[in-house]
Design a protein around this nucleic acid. Structure first.
Lengths: 223, 223, 223, 223
DNA sequence: AATGAATGAGGGTTCATTCAT
DNA sequence: AATGAATGAACCCTCATTCAT
C-alpha cells in the first residue's frame, strides 16, 4: 500500500514530477511516522526511504510538523474513502451490523499504519488534528451508515432503542483497535498472537458477537 | 504518586536521601514518559521535574532505557497490586463481573499515566517489556479473578460456556482503554468529551452492559 | 599543511568552499590527533582550530572515528608520495643506502605529526588501520627502493647477503622514530635535546653509520 | 607481574591493609594506563580491576594525575632494579655488550606495559616525568654498565673510540622498543608478527648484530 | 524548481572529583 | 580511615531547519 515506486530508467534519473515526488514522500513519511511515532521519526530516514534529501522534503512540505499533518490528513482520507464503499442497504440490520464490525476490524488489521498514526496523534494529545480544518470537519461515513442501520433495526424492533451511533462506533473501534495497538504488551503478557499474526477470523467473530449481543439485548440486570 | 520534591534551596547541597531521590526520579520519569513517549521524553526534562541533574539520574538508573524499564515495571507492579485488592467472593457472578469491569475502567481513567505508558511501550513494539524478566513472568491477578468468576457463573448457568478469561479481559481492557488512549482523536472527531473529562459513569455503564450482554447471551444468529 | 583557515568575519556566513573546508578540517584534525592522541583529541578543539563547529565536522566525516581514519590515511599517503620521490639509481649502493637513511630520518624529524599519529594508532592497537582497506593494501615504495639497493649491493659484493629489506627498513625506522617518539622521556632522563631540537645532523650521521656498519660487515663473533 | 591478589577469606572481606590496597590499585592502574593511555584510562575501570571504588583511589592518590605519576615512578623503579641485576664483569666487552642488548630487548618484550607507559608519557610530552623529582634525578644503571663496558672495550682496542654510552643506549633502546611500540602498524603494513608474538630470538639477534657491527667497526666511507 | 552546505540547539552519556558522614 | 552520594563539565552525536545558488 505504501509502495509507489513507478519504474524509472537510468537515463531520466529525476522524474521531475512534483506530484509524484510529493506522493512518494508522503508514503515514506506515513511508513516512518507509523513505525516510529512523531518524535521517533527522522526527516533523514524519510528522505532515505524516498532516495531524496531532507531539503527537498522541507521544500515540499515546509517542516516536519506540516509533513506529519499531511500524513494525518491522508490516512483519515483513506479510511473515509474505504468507508464510503460500504454497501449495506440490501442487508438486514443485524447482517449489516455484523458487516460493519467486520469491515472495521479488517481495516485496522490490514492498515496497521493507520492505527499507529492514530496512536501517535493521541500521544501528541491531538494537537495536529485540532489544527487541521480539513480534519476538524471530517465526517466519517461509517457513523452515518451505523446510524441508518441502527434506525432500521430499531424501527424493526430487532435492535435496542437506547444506543446512539457514536457509542456503537466507539465500541467497535475500541475492540478492533486494541487488537492492533496493544498487540505487543497484551500479546507478550498473555502469550497471545495478536494483530495480523493472530487468529484474525476468530477474534473478529468474538468482536461481532460482543457488539451484536449488546445491541439486540434489552439490557442486563446485575444491579 | 506524581508529586514533585519538596522545595530545596540551592545552598543545602546534599539531601542524602537516596531512596527518596530514586522514588522522586521514578515519579518524574513516569510523568514524562507518559506525557511524551519514550523518544519524546528528555532526560533533561525529567531532571528538571526532580530539581536534580541528568547525571544523577544516570547514576541511579544507568541510562534512559533502563530508567524507562524501571518505570514500566513499576506501573505494572502498581496495577497488579491494585488488582489484588479486588474482593469478589461475596458477589454473584454477574455482580462480580460488573465489579471487575468497573474497577478496570476506573483504574484506566484514574491512572492515565499507566495507559499512556502502555501505549508508549506498544509504540516501541514491546521491546523493553520483552527484555524484562520481571515483566515477562508477570501474572495479572485480574485474569485469575476473572477465571474464577466465569467458572462460578458457568456452573451456575448464568454465564455462557464458550468464553475464556483472557478474551474477556481483552474485551474489558479494549473498551476501557480506548476511552483514554483515543480521547483526543475520537473526542475531536465526534465532539465527545472522553477520558476523565467525559461522562465517566455513563460510559462505564455502557461498557459493563456490553460485557454482560455478551456473557449472558447464548449467541446471536445473524448469519 | 597544518596552517589554519584564512580569517573570516562572522558576518559572512557561508564560505561555500567544501573542498577547502574538508582540507582545513583534516589539517586541524591531524594536528589535534597528533598532539593529544585519539582519546585525548576533542572534536570541539578540532572545530575551534578551523573556526567551524563540531556539527560541520560530522557532516563531512560522519564521526570522530571516521575523521581519524581519514587523517591516518592521509598521513600515510603523504609519506608514500614522499618516498616515491627518492631517486637512487645514479648512486652506488652504499651511497643510496645512506640516502635512504637520511631521507627517512629527516622525514620523521620534519613531520613529527606523522610520527605521533603512528604512535597514536599503535596505542589503539592498530584498530583503525586494520579496518581501512586503503591502508591494509598500502605498499610503501621505500621498501621496494631498499630491496633494489640491497640487491645491487649484494651482487656487487659490497653488502652482506643475509638481510631482507623489511628488516632493514625496520632498523632504519626504529632508529629514526625513537629520536622523535621518545624525545621527552629519553631527553629528560639523559639530558639530551632530541627530535627537531637536537643535533639532527649529528644523530642522523650516527644512524647512517649504524645501518651501514651492519650491512657491510660479515658479522661479529661474540659468542 | 601485575597480580597481587593475596588470598582473602570471605569472613574478612576488607583487608584493611592500606599498603596492600595501594599496591593493588597501583598494579591495576599500571595495567589500565598501559592498555589505554592516560586519557583513555578511566578511574572507574581501574576501580573495577581492584574491586574498590573511584573514591578510594582518590583517597589514596589524590587524583588521576597523581595516580599516573605514581605508576610512572613505579615502572621506572622496576626497570632500574632489573638493570641493577646485570652482572657483566666476568664477560669480555663484546660479550658484555651483547648481553646488555639482549637484556634490554627481553625486558621490553617481557614488560610491554613498561613500554606502553613510556609511550603514553611521551604522548603527554613528558609533562609528568618533568614534575617528578624522583624521576628527574633517576639514574639508570644500564648507562653506567654500558659506560664501563665501552671503556673496557676501548682500552682493549676492540671497540671504536668515538661513541658515548648514551648514544649506544639510545640505539639499543630504539631497536628494542620499536619492536613493541610499532608492532601494530608495522606488523600490519609489512605482514610481520612482532612484539612477544614475533620471532623474538631472531630479531633480538639482528639487533645485537646491528649494535656490535657498529661498535667494532672503524666506520664506513660512503661519502 | 531544487539542492548541497552549513548550523544552533539539544540529545544522552561519561567522567574525575567533591563531600558529608 | 573509608565510602556512597552527588555533581558540573565535557564528551560525541543527531536533528530539523536555513540559505545561497
Amino acid at each position: 500500500m505504501l509502495q509507489l515506486a513507478t519504474s524509472r530508467t537510468k537515463a531520466m534519473r529525476k522524474p521531475k514530477a512534483p506530484e509524484a515526488n510529493r506522493a512518494r514522500i508522503l508514503a515514506a513519511a506515513t511508513a516512518e511516522f507509523a513505525a516510529r511515532g512523531y518524535d521517533g521519526a527522522s526527516m533523514d530516514a524519510i528522505a532515505a526511504r524516498t532516495r531524496t534529501t531532507r531539503a527537498l522534503i522541507n521544500y515540499y512540505f515546509g517542516s516536519k510538523e506540516r509533513l506529519y499533518q499531511a500524513v494525518l490528513e491522508r490516512v483519515y482520507a483513506e479510511i473515509r474513502e474505504a468507508e464510503e464503499g460500504l454497501e449495506l442497504d440490501h442487508l438486514s440490520p443485524l447482517e449489516a451490523m455484523r458487516r460493519i464490525v467486520e469491515f472495521t476490524y479488517d481495516y485496522y488489521v490490514g492498515h496497521e499504519y493507520f492505527v499507529r498514526i492514530v496512536v501517535a496523534e493521541n500521544q501528541a494529545r491531538g494537537r495536529h488534528l485540532k489544527r487541521s480544518p480539513t480534519l476538524r470537519t471530517l465526517n466519517r461515513p461509517i457513523v452515518d451508515r451505523l446510524a441508518a442501520v441502527i434506525a432500521r433495526g430499531q424501527s424493526e424492533g430487532t435492535l435496542r432503542r437506547d444506543v446512539d451511533p457514536v457509542s456503537v462506533h466507539m465500541a467497535i473501534a475500541a475492540l478492533g483497535m486494541f487488537n492492533v495497538t496493544n498487540q505487543f504488551t497484551f500479546g507478550a503478557l498473555f502469550q497471545q498472537d495478536m494483530g495480523a499474526k493472530g487468529d484474525v477470523a476468530g477474534r473478529r467473530g468474538i468482536v461481532a458477537d460482543i457488539i451484536l449481543s449488546w445491541l439486540v439485548t434489552a439490557g442486563v440486570s446485575a444491579r
